[in-house]
């Protein structure tokens, strides 16, 4: 299946449709993101992120694509390797007006294996269009329901114990494909006091959760990246659910819509806040 992707990308490069392909390469056993510009590079080191099996090594390809688009000097078009989660992230970035001209990104889709989908309990383990892999069943993640099953005091004790392990490495933010701000509220001294580990509970994590509203596309990269194994995904997943309930805004969906900040601005009659 890696060959199918390679051939597809080679075709894109050869036709001049894309100036480069943002994918992954295996460099002596280390899988890292790489911008392929020549067909030969694909032959020597192209990877689908396999260490044990396909995709085990995941990177926030949407975020990397955003940086590439924003920082390259010309307005070339680039190919990007996307899974289901990456596609949702790109959709979301587009709705937050981050991608400029979205036509500059050509998605090269790959469907994930069942094993990977199960591991991350992925709600849609394939992009809308893909050149390799097979559609496997969507998986469900019940972590939100598990927390909701607890009473208030148990929830507080649960989260406090989790947050207490935080070493404030910002890994959750740095890996997040939809964290696009140039300056981060989590680094504002006046709001989150510096010099505390764990960071002030619950200010640090709830602040980040609020900023995930209308953004989190449930890719599970944060939880995967967290060295303290805090189930951050559960928190942000709940935030996404709240926004979906209140504003009928589904993160990661395709379409021309705008971010939920625009829902508040354009409809003064909305009274959810007046409660």
């Amino acid at each position: 299946m890696i060959e199918q992707v390679k051939e597809h990308v080679k075709g894109l490069l050869a036709s001049g449709k894309i100036a480069g392909f943002l994918g992954l390469r295996n460099d002596a056993g280390v899988v890292t993101p790489f911008l392929f510009k020549q067909e030969e590079q694909l032959d020597s080191s192209f990877s689908l992120g396999e260490t044990e099996s396909q995709g085990t090594m995941r990177y926030p390809m949407a975020k990397l694509a955003l940086h590439l688009i924003q920082n390259c000097d010309d307005d070339s078009t680039y190919g990007v390797l996307v899974r289901g989660c990456d596609e949702r992230a790109l959709n979301e970035l587009k709705r937050w007006n981050q991608l400029g001209n979205p036509d500059r990104i050509v998605q090269v889709g790959v469907a994930c294996t069942l094993g990977l989908a199960e591991e991350h309990e992925c709600r849609k383990p394939f992009p809308d269009e893909f050149v390799a892999g097979e559609k496997v069943d969507p998986q469900t993640n019940n972590s939100v329901q598990q927390v909701l099953a607890k009473d208030l005091d148990s929830r507080l004790a649960f989260w406090s114990a989790e947050f207490d392990r935080c070493i404030k490495c910002y890994g959750c933010r740095n890996i997040c494909p939809v964290c696009f701000c140039n300056v981060c509220t989590l680094e504002e001294d006046a709001l989150i006091k510096t010099g505390n580990i764990p960071p002030e509970n619950p200010m640090f994590h709830l602040t980040r959760a609020v900023h995930m509203a209308g953004r989190c596309i449930d890719c599970n990269l944060c939880t995967e990246a967290c060295p303290a194994e805090i189930p951050l995904r559960t928190l942000y997943k709940r935030v996404a659910e709240i926004i979906a309930d209140e504003f009928s805004y589904v993160t990661g969906a395709t379409g021309e819509g705008k971010s939920p900040l625009n829902i508040l601005g354009s409809d003064p009659g909305h009274t959810a806040a007046n409660d």
Binding site: L156, S160, I242, N274
Partner: peptide
């Protein structure tokens, strides 16, 4: 916000937002 703090384990009644 009410739903978020409730998820975290704080009584949502502790938060009130009203336009006056």
């Amino acid at each position: 916000m009410k739903k978020l703090i409730e998820f975290y384990g704080i009584d949502p009644e502790r938060l009130s937002l009203k336009w006056v």
